[in-house]
Simulated scan of single mutants.
Amino acid sequence: MKIHYLQHVPFENPGSILEWAKANKAIVTATQLYNDEALPDVNAFDWLVVMGGPMNIYEVDQYPWLKAEKALIKAAIEADKVVIGMCLGSQLIADVIGGKVIQNKQKEIGWFPISFSEKAKASALFAFFPDQPVVFHWHGDTFVELPEAATVIAASAACKKQAFVYQQRVFGFQFHLENTLPIIEDLIKNCGDEMIPGDYVQLPEEVLAHPEYIRQDNHWMAAFLDQLKQLTEEGWI
């Protein structure tokens, strides 16, 4: 298995996804877009993982590599690759497939529960999640008006579209299951000015007070990837 990931800023790497890839003997390559590195050919990987970042999908003038990145995501989807987007990554996928990304009514930063749809709970990819799992959020935008081929599978009190599945092999998650403690610490260091207390924005002390949530999220990330690997290898998706 060959996994390629797209990283937008130095402090948001794939975290526990890299640990899972190592345990599964996957070949991992990366494009550090913030260093203007060249994107790979779509045939160079099996899975494409698109990470988060503080920029928005429409800031092409400030981040000109967004245009080429979207083209690669589109090519990967058309080539039936597995594509997984985390936060900004999910919004980039949504834009590529014809959805719309807008500013959410409020920012969502910290540990908040989500709820999966009944359809998602019936899928082996998500059936292991408990009711109302607490996951990590750090986003201000959200995707809306997704195409009919995309199914919204999760919601939270602050954001009604938390995750979607598109054509069985493409997944967008607004929330972060992959973040490790160093990543969260770096997010606070680099983007902490966004943490203005509100109904859905927690302070740094509260975010850092829950190492048990990090361990649980990373466990769920690995369980999802395990199921995804099995289903793709067996030809179910």
Score class of each variant (00 low, 15 high):
Asn218Met: 10
Leu187Pro: 05
Ile102Cys: 09
Cys87Val: 07
His219Leu: 15
Ala158Gln: 07
Trp20Met: 14
Asn35Arg: 14
Asp199Thr: 13
Phe171Arg: 01
Ile17Asn: 12
Phe126Thr: 00
Ala68His: 04
Glu206Ala: 15
Ala122Val: 02
Val135Leu: 11
Phe171Thr: 03
Lys22Arg: 15
Ile237Lys: 01
Ala44Asn: 13
Pro113Lys: 05
Asn24Leu: 13
Asp217Lys: 12
Phe116Asp: 00
Lys2Arg: 14
Pro54Cys: 11
Leu88Glu: 06
Asp193Gln: 11
Pro211Met: 08
Gly235Arg: 10
Ala71Cys: 08
Glu205Ile: 02
Trp220Ala: 08
Trp111Met: 11
Gly192Pro: 02
Ala158Cys: 07
Phe116Tyr: 05
Gln174Leu: 06
Pro204Cys: 06
His137Cys: 12
Pro133Tyr: 03
Ala38Met: 14
Leu208Ala: 09
Ile102Pro: 00
Pro40Lys: 10
Trp20Pro: 11
Gln7Asn: 04
Gly140His: 05
Leu181Ala: 14
Val42Trp: 12
Pro182Ile: 07
Thr180Pro: 01
Leu187Val: 11
Phe116His: 02
Ala158Met: 04
Lys105Tyr: 11
His219Gln: 15
Leu66Pro: 04
Leu225Pro: 04
Lys121Arg: 10
Asn104Gln: 03
Ile109Gly: 06
Lys121Ala: 00
Phe45Asp: 06
Gly98Met: 02
Arg169His: 11
Glu69Arg: 07
Glu69Thr: 08
Cys191Gly: 08
Val152Asn: 08
Ile102Gly: 06
Ala23Asn: 12
Leu208Val: 03
Ile3Ala: 13
Pro133Ile: 09
Ile17Glu: 10
Leu228Ser: 01
Asp80Leu: 03
Val170Gln: 02
Gln216Phe: 05
Asp193Lys: 12
Ala124Ile: 03
Gly98Leu: 03
Glu233Cys: 08
Ala120Val: 07
Phe143Cys: 08
Phe128Gln: 10
Pro182Phe: 06
Leu88Gly: 05
Leu125Phe: 02
Lys119Cys: 02
Asn179Phe: 14
Glu59Arg: 04
Tyr58Arg: 14
Asp217Gly: 13
Ala149Gly: 03
Ile153Glu: 00
Ala163Tyr: 01
Ile196Val: 15
Gly235Ala: 13
Phe116Pro: 00
Glu148Leu: 13
Ile237Thr: 00
Gln132Gly: 03
Val42Arg: 10
Trp138Pro: 11
Ser90Tyr: 00
Phe173Asp: 08
Phe11Asn: 09
Gln202Gly: 09
Val101Cys: 00
Gly53Gln: 08
Ile114Arg: 00
Gln91Asn: 06
Val49Cys: 13
Val28Ser: 05
Ile188Thr: 05
Gly99Tyr: 07
Lys107Ser: 12
Gln230Asn: 08
Gln168His: 13
Ala68Asp: 11
Ala71Tyr: 05
His176Gln: 13
Phe173His: 05
Pro14Arg: 07
Ile183Asp: 07
Gly89Cys: 07
Tyr34Cys: 05
Phe116Glu: 00
Lys160Trp: 01
Val165Ala: 03
Gly53Val: 09
Thr142Phe: 09
Thr29Met: 06
Ala44Gly: 12
Cys191Thr: 03
Met1Leu: 12
Gln162Leu: 06
Glu205Gly: 07
Ala124Ser: 11
Leu72Cys: 01
Leu66Glu: 06
Tyr34Ala: 04
Leu18Cys: 10
Leu146Cys: 03
Ala222Phe: 08
Val135Thr: 06
Lys161Met: 14
Phe112Cys: 08
Ile73Ser: 01
Leu231Tyr: 07
Val82Gly: 05
Ile153Pro: 00
Gln174Ala: 05
Ile114Trp: 02
